[in-house]
Design a protein around this nucleic acid. Structure first.
Length: 480
DNA sequence: TTTTGAGTTGTTCGA
DNA sequence: GTCGAACAACTCAAA
């Protein structure tokens, strides 16, 4: 059947919503009939170590909600399972579409995938159209006066804020054109109710963790954060306090629009220190997407080339102790146990844990970065890599490498009462607020009273921070 | 081309 | 407890 010139496909990926969606809006506006698809990519799924995967579960739930929303709008969602370069062209052909719309993805692997899909579509005479959607400003929109990408954040942020206006924050009113959604009956195959089991996966503990997927889950967290946004600056650094937005996972999968969030923050600009501070975090997000696009080699290499050749002597024993939360440094162990148990870690602790692995245990930052990638529900290559390289002093605008976090003073500053530590390292709960940060300094009597003998009930520190700090300084003292 | 000011989130030391 | 300086010298971005 020859393609109907007025039919197109919208391919949903990390943009699992119907409102304010760039590719969906463009497709609806320019076509008479729009078919929606989502692809469970077997190239990705087959590499996952477990059949019970929180991210797959989160996506599946979000896809289910997306399908219901599209159905309510008169359309449908066709859920496919296979390799995108095969199933996307096949779907386009079956639907008689001559155009496939999707939103930009900036990760190296995704860029490769999209190039392959585009080539496969071109062979069939089908166009591939993409739009910016997951960031406010993308790869080449905010540049230095020289037309080059920024490499330091503050200058980037100033230019970003200068350029920002209502145009860039406008919502794409998809609902205006919902009448162009292809009706369920128009789909070449009956789409059906669909579950995790269909792709060989199992449900996880998202409910027990209080994580609600989909647009409704995003909205719930967003409404809750709006009540707290003015206090964000003062509360965000304390892991025992409900300070963050907890929206990272929703930004990861696009169950909420970045424009909607930035618009709300921007509308408070200058009147709310909390909103200004949070907007700045959204700028960081754009910044790291921009860096990853312009310098894709950072995925595997140090951004600062002079540090790329460092051989990190930290061994598997140390790495395993870090992973399992038994380094003997309570704040680090609590952070790692939070990650292992919940798939999330507070931002302050991501820095503490990363600094500790690299600067105290002298393990290559890439190993830590990969471990976070495996565990974090909100894992995003750009932000995770950027954050790790920043902590490791190998990244953008590395301040001098001798800025090394002290795990005890960080603990005293940001978890003063030890509430967070007690939550995740209950064996230390008997120690007083002061001692809990460095329990090895407690006397035998104190340990006995606390019901926790160091070296028996909780590990003694596996490294001495002062000594490890010196070693790190030597490790990084390389000539450019 | 040269100059100038500045760089997310810090720590330690000594007064 | 608090404060300022040192950490060591480089890179970035704009003027």
């Amino acid at each position: 059947m020859s393609p109907d010139p007025k039919s197109s496909i919208v391919w949903f990926r990390r943009d699992l919503r119907v409102q304010d969606h760039a590719a969906l809006y463009e497709a609806l506006k320019r076509s008479d009939k729009v078919f929606c698809i989502f692809v469970f990519d077997t190239d990705i799924l087959e590499r996952l170590p477990s059949r019970a995967d929180r991210r797959v579960d989160f996506i599946a739930r979000s896809v289910t909600e997306l399908r219901a929303a599209l159905r309510a709008a008169g359309g449908d969602l066709w859920v496919l399972h296979g390799r995108p370069e095969t199933v996307v062209p096949e779907a386009a052909r079956k639907a008689g579409a001559n155009r496939v719309w999707t939103n930009h993805d900036y990760e190296p692997a995704a860029r490769k995938r999209d190039a392959a899909v585009e080539a496969a579509l071109a062979k069939q005479g089908i166009a591939f159209e993409t739009r910016k959607d997951q960031v406010v400003f993308e790869k080449d929109e905010v540049l230095t006066g020289q037309g080059t990408p920024f490499k330091v954040f503050t200058a980037y942020k100033n230019a970003w804020l200068d350029k920002l206006d209502a145009f860039y924050l406008r919502a794409y009113p998809t609902e205006k054109y919902f009448k162009h959604l292809a009706s369920p009956a128009a789909y070449p195959e009956r789409t059906r109710e669909w579950t995790l089991k269909d792709i060989g996966f199992e449900p996880t503990d998202l409910d027990a963790l209080g994580i609600r997927a989909g647009m409704s889950g995003a909205k719930e967290r967003w409404m809750d954060f709006l009540k707290r946004i003015d206090r964000y600056k003062d509360t965000r650094d304390f892991p025992a306090v409900k300070g963050p937005s907890y929206l990272s996972v929703h930004l990861r999968f696009g169950t909420v629009s970045i424009r909607e969030l930035a618009r709300a923050a921007e509308s408070r600009a200058g009147r709310s220190a909390g909103a200004d501070c949070w907007l700045s975090e959204l700028v960081w997000r754009d910044f790291y997407f921009m860096i990853l696009w312009n310098f894709p080699e950072v995925e595997r290499h140090a951004f600062l080339k002079k540090y790329d050749g460092i051989v990190f002597p930290g061994d598997a024993k140390k790495f395993n102790a870090w992973r399992e939360g038994r380094t003997g440094y309570p704040i680090v162990d609590a952070a790692m146990r939070q990650l292992n148990r919940t798939g999330w870690m507070h931002n302050r602790l991501r820095m503490v844990a990363a600094s500790f692995l690299v600067k105290d245990l002298h393990v290559d930052w890439r190993k830590g970065e990969r471990y976070f990638a495996e565990k974090l529900l909100d894992y995003d290559l750009s932000a995770n890599n950027g954050g790790w390289q920043w902590s490791a002093s190998t990244g953008c605008d590395a301040q001098p490498y001798f800025r090394i976090f002290n795990p005890v003073s960080q603990s005293e500053r940001f978890d003063a009462q030890g509430d967070f530590i007690r939550r995740y390292v209950p064996e230390l709960a008997g120690f007083t607020g002061k001692r809990i940060h460095a329990p090895w300094t407690a006397s035998a009597d104190e340990q006995s009273v606390a019901g926790c003998v160091i070296g028996r009930d909780y590990p003694a520190p596996i490294v001495d921070h002062a000594q490890a700090r010196k070693t790190a300084l030597e490790l990084f003292n390389v000539k450019s």
